[in-house]
Design a protein around this nucleic acid. Structure first.
Length: 609
DNA sequence: CTAGGGTTAG
């Protein structure tokens, strides 16, 4: 002690990399939530200059940042530069794969990690579980649960909470496991409760969710919003509103949930009123209402709200772009779709797989196949959804040849067709009259592509056979369906009967449909009326609609929209609201006559298969 | 790890 003051201690040498890294601390912290790729690239370049990119502290931050910008290629580059990745780096990589919705890559990384003698910790498990989203993942969740029993990381509340969340996304069986786990926990936090309640809401168990909500000791905003959403999802808007009013606090999510609920219930006035009253709006709030208008074909409202949104200095994110484009695709609002395209052109969003898929689907569904192709060809990384949207677009517009060519190209490039692909391929065959080819694809799909035929596939082939007049084969196929026919199948068959004047068979099919009608009036009535409408049987359409009305079934009739100039015109079956509707129908009848003269019986009706 | 918007079929 005595010498202390006099003594000058030897300076401790600080390695150069410590101080340079110190310079990057701030930047690295910011990188954590940065979604601007240009900025991340810039920091990356500086880091490489300092030779810090293999640093086990720096590399995870970079991987995380690149994955947040949806640039897994660069994230992987960073990972591959590190000579001896440790557990933390693997964890970061796994989370990055999960975030970019590449669950199989996440598990591949896990495998590689374990082969290198590194084993998961309490961080790894929640990341992996986050990848398990949906019923097919149940066995994986169970396996992870099993291996967790051996290592016991349950002391970390994130672990059981993640398990509850993943289980509860795996259907009815999963919910049961989630509940068992939830009940067996010694201590639960708000997240455990919220995850469990959220699971019950997803499963449509409003009663169970409410019970648990009432049982909860402490409720924060998320719990209230979850239960609010439960009422909204159940379509109980009056009860939702009551709850909304007596919530202790309402945040932007609570308001948006209400707007979404009214919009889905078709009450656009109420949705708009709440939207205008919201104290703060974010991109999701705008998206909900714009998509709501667009889905209902209210083009003017959608477009003017979109313009307002653009003025509000909020930028479209990927979710907003996908959502609005999907709504445009559904209602054929090409104009708004093009506006969205213009806003995202030359931005990062164009390189976002989900966004370009939604864009190409919008163009395809609106009949702009050339534009759809352009988007498709320019995509840096096409996934199976891109191919499916393109194939489906070609198929429904009757370009069967081109669809089948694209299908070969898809396989050539090593893409694995899925059930949607096969629906599109069969649809292409149906719409272009490729009977033998369609049958061959259908008969080989299990062997060649390992895809078990679904009801949609049966539907396509029954349509295919029916149009070709091979009614007996169609009937035999219906009888052989392992899942049994639904109303759409009967409807397809009925259409074929009418097309080929098979009155006797039509009667049998109608009897089958009548039995369906008892089971689910709503669905079949609409299907029936659509069939009659497609067959031009207006009297029966009116009858069915009247029947529905007297039974108290309200289904807004399907409407079509067409843009002429800057105006959107809407029309429905039996629509007589136009002053010249008499002439319009005369024209339609004339066209139908002409088509008949061409001798293609498939012009008689059309299904959306 | 938990709440509101979402792409391919119906």
């Amino acid at each position: 002690m005595a010498n202390c003051g006099a003594q000058i201690s030897t300076p401790i040498r600080v390695p150069a990399w410590v101080s340079t890294r110190r310079l990057f601390e701030q930047k690295l912290q910011e990188l954590h939530k940065c979604t601007d790729l240009a900025h991340v690239k810039e920091v990356h370049a500086q880091i490489i200059k300092q030779n810090l990119h293999t640093d086990l502290y720096v590399a995870p931050k970079l991987i995380s940042a690149f994955s947040l910008c949806h640039h897994m290629k660069l994230a992987l580059n960073v990972f591959n530069q590190v000579p001896h990745p440790n557990l933390q780096l693997y964890n970061t990589l796994i989370r990055a794969h999960v975030r970019s919705s590449q669950p199989s890559m996440a598990f591949a990384a896990l495998l590689e990690m374990q082969q290198n003698g590194i084993f998961p910790d309490n961080f790894t498990y929640p990341f992996l579980l986050k990848a398990c989203n949906g019923e097919p993942w149940l066995p994986v969740v169970q396996m992870i649960h099993g291996s967790l029993e051996k290592v016991d990381f349950f002391g970390d509340i994130f672990v059981p909470n993640s398990l509850i969340d993943s289980y509860s996304k795996c259907g009815a069986l999963g919910i049961q496991s989630a509940m068992r786990l939830f009940r067996s926990m010694d201590s639960r936090d708000v997240v455990s409760w919220n995850s469990m309640i959220g699971g019950l809401v997803r499963a449509g168990d409003l009663g169970g969710a409410r019970e648990l909500f009432d049982e909860m000791p402490v409720r924060d905003a998320i719990s209230w919003n979850t239960i609010l959403d439960a009422y909204v999802k159940a379509g109980k808007m009056d009860e939702a509103f009551e709850l909304f009013e007596k919530m202790p606090e309402r945040n932007v999510v609570s308001w948006s949930t209400m707007v979404s609920g009214y919009s889905k219930a078709g009450d656009m006035q109420m949705a708009r009123m709440l939207f205008d009253k919201m104290p703060t709006k974010n991109m999701v709030s705008w998206t909900i209402l714009i998509s709501g208008y667009a889905q209902k074909g209210l083009a003017q409202d959608a477009v003017s709200l979109y313009s307002l949104m653009e003025k509000s200095r909020l930028m479209l994110d990927s979710g907003a772009a996908v959502s609005i484009l999907a709504a445009c695709a559904e209602s054929g609002l090409l104009g708004l779709g093009e506006r969205v395209h213009a806003s995202i052109a030359r931005t990062r969003l164009m390189h976002h797989a989900d966004v370009s898929n939604a864009l190409l689907d919008m163009y395809a569904k609106c009949g702009r196949l050339k534009k759809a192709y352009e988007v498709f060809e320019r995509m840096a990384e096409r996934d199976v959804v891109s191919w499916n949207c393109m194939l489906q677009g070609l198929a429904i517009h009757g370009h069967g040849d081109e669809a089948l060519k694209l299908f070969s190209r898809m396989k050539q490039q090593g893409f694995k067709p899925d059930k949607f692909t096969l629906v599109a391929v069969l649809c292409a065959c149906t719409h272009s009259g490729f009977i033998d080819e369609g049958l061959r694809y259908f008969n080989n799909m299990e062997k060649e592509y390992r895809i078990a035929p679904d009801i949609e596939h049966y539907g396509c082939v029954i349509d295919l056979l029916g149009r070709a007049g091979r009614l007996n084969e169609a009937i035999r196929l219906v009888d052989s369906m392992p899942m049994g026919p639904n109303a759409v199948i009967w409807g397809t068959l009925l259409g074929a009967c009418r097309m080929h004047n098979a009155a006797e068979l039509a009667k049998q099919v109608q009897d089958h449909m009548a039995r369906f009608e008892e089971a689910s009036e709503h669905g079949t009535c609409s299907v029936l009326s659509n069939i009659y409408a497609a067959a031009g049987d207006w009297v029966n359409v009116a009858n069915v609609r009247l029947q529905m009305k007297s039974a108290g079934i309200q289904k807004p009739s399907g409407a079509s929209f067409i843009e002429v100039g800057d105006k959107v015109h809407e029309f429905t079956v039996l629509d007589m609201s136009h002053p010249d509707s008499g002439e319009v129908y005369e024209m339609v009848d004339g066209l139908v006559q002409e088509l008949r003269l061409f001798g293609d019986p498939s012009n008689d009706h059309h299904h959306t298969y």
